[in-house]
Design a protein around this nucleic acid. Structure first.
Lengths: 122, 122
DNA sequence: TCGAACCATCACATACGTGTGAAGGTCTAC
DNA sequence: GTAGACCTTCACACGTATGTGATGGTTCGA
């Protein structure tokens, strides 16, 4: 699939798809004419990347955690240095804290909305 | 409390505290000499703001959801316009999706780390 | 009273994700 | 063969959260 189709399927501009590739977040093979050629898995990958970006992770970190999401993942094990493991543990915890924060505030908003509805009834 | 103490207690630069105030995220009264004066609640407020920023929310949105977190909140009810309610519902859902994304990826990292540890043992 | 440690405002700079447009190559359909 | 819809690279611009430094006022202890 070419970049236009991927852009449409993921709701992402072509510009950003090229940027993500430049940052090492997605890979594309090239057709004989130089056009980028994406496989079907790229759609999920791009959506994944966008979700993480939206959740506040910078591309540098996303690039590091992406290998965790690939299957089969065995080929990456020998490459897992102690520093890499430590980085992943840190990011895992950071993501958990972020999620907690979001859920806590989501609940607060929900409570507020409930209270407003109650107020409007009374 | 002055800005230096708040900065130290929250791990936030003075520059950013002034920026958050400029964006309407925190408020500070002023001493006779012009120095900012923060109350004790400011510490939690700043930490709250930083958590939301780190989770990817822009100051514009944070400013909108902050009233939900204040107690007592009753005074805000009459101000709750339908558009405001809709915005809050949208942000609430968006935050839930973000949290889901983070937790999903956190789990993937955990699984990866477990697999690496298993690999290193065998 | 002098110096250090605060505080103020203001301006300029940087990193990052993203938009936009120029200049040009490729392919397809009429 | 030409028009239009793709694609390429490159460069410049913007918004936002942040850093840094200049310039100057205030407070407090030696």
């Amino acid at each position: 699939m070419r970049i236009g189709e991927l852009a449409e399927r993921t709701g992402t501009s072509r510009r950003l798809l090229r940027y993500y590739e430049e940052q090492g977040l997605i890979i594309a093979s090239r057709a004989a004419n130089g056009y980028r050629d994406y496989d079907r898995a790229s759609v999920d990958r791009v959506i994944q990347v966008r979700g993480l970006l939206d959740a506040g992770l910078p591309t540098r970190i996303i690039k590091q955690i992406l290998p965790c999401l690939d299957k089969p993942r065995a080929i990456y094990f020998p490459d897992a240095t102690p520093e890499m493991i430590a980085t992943l543990e840190g990011e895992r915890d950071r993501m958990a804290r972020r999620a907690e924060c979001l859920l806590r505030n989501r609940d607060a908003i929900s409570e507020y909305l409930d209270a407003v509805r109650e107020y409007d009834r009374g």
